[in-house]
Simulated scan of single mutants.
Amino acid sequence: MSEQTKADYIDDVDVDEEWDAHPSDAELEEAVESLEESGFEVEVVADAEEALEVVTEEIPEGASVMNGHSTTLEEIGFMEYLNEGEHEWENLYGEVFSIDDDQARAKARREAQTADYFLGSVNAIGREDGTLVAADLSGSRIGAYPFAAGHVVTVAGVNKVVADEEAARERLHDYAYAFENERAQEAYGVESYPSKELVVRQETVEGRTTVVLVEETLGY
Score class of each variant (00 low, 15 high):
11 D>Q: 13
11 D>E: 13
12 D>T: 15
13 V>S: 01
14 D>N: 15
14 D>A: 12
15 V>Y: 01
16 D>H: 09
19 W>M: 01
19 W>S: 01
20 D>P: 10
25 D>H: 14
27 E>R: 14
27 E>M: 12
31 A>Y: 01
32 V>I: 07
34 S>K: 11
36 E>I: 03
40 F>L: 09
42 V>A: 04
49 E>R: 15
50 E>V: 13
50 E>G: 13
52 L>R: 06
55 V>P: 01
60 P>E: 06
61 E>G: 02
64 S>V: 06
68 G>E: 00
70 S>W: 00
71 T>W: 00
72 T>K: 08
73 L>P: 06
74 E>H: 15
74 E>I: 14
76 I>L: 04
76 I>M: 04
78 F>L: 09
79 M>D: 11
82 L>P: 05
82 L>Q: 01
85 G>H: 12
85 G>I: 11
87 H>N: 07
88 E>D: 15
89 W>N: 03
89 W>T: 04
91 N>H: 01
92 L>T: 02
93 Y>T: 13
94 G>A: 02
97 F>G: 02
98 S>C: 10
99 I>F: 06
99 I>K: 04
101 D>P: 14
104 A>N: 12
104 A>F: 09
105 R>N: 10
107 K>W: 13
110 R>D: 11
111 E>G: 11
112 A>T: 02
113 Q>F: 08
113 Q>W: 11
117 Y>Q: 00
124 A>V: 10
126 G>P: 11
127 R>D: 07
127 R>S: 00
129 D>P: 08
130 G>F: 05
130 G>C: 06
131 T>Q: 05
132 L>Q: 01
132 L>A: 00
134 A>I: 10
135 A>Q: 03
137 L>V: 10
138 S>M: 12
139 G>L: 08
142 I>P: 10
143 G>H: 06
146 P>D: 08
146 P>H: 11
147 F>N: 13
154 T>V: 14
155 V>S: 01
156 A>T: 12
159 N>Y: 10
160 K>V: 04
162 V>Q: 03
162 V>Y: 09
173 H>V: 14
179 F>G: 06
181 N>Y: 00
181 N>G: 03
183 R>V: 03
183 R>G: 05
184 A>P: 12
184 A>T: 14
186 E>C: 05
186 E>T: 14
188 Y>H: 15
191 E>M: 08
193 Y>V: 12
194 P>Y: 05
194 P>C: 00
194 P>Q: 02
198 L>D: 00
198 L>K: 09
199 V>C: 06
199 V>R: 00
203 E>H: 07
205 V>S: 00
207 G>H: 03
209 T>N: 02
213 L>E: 04
215 E>C: 00
215 E>P: 02
215 E>G: 04
219 G>P: 11
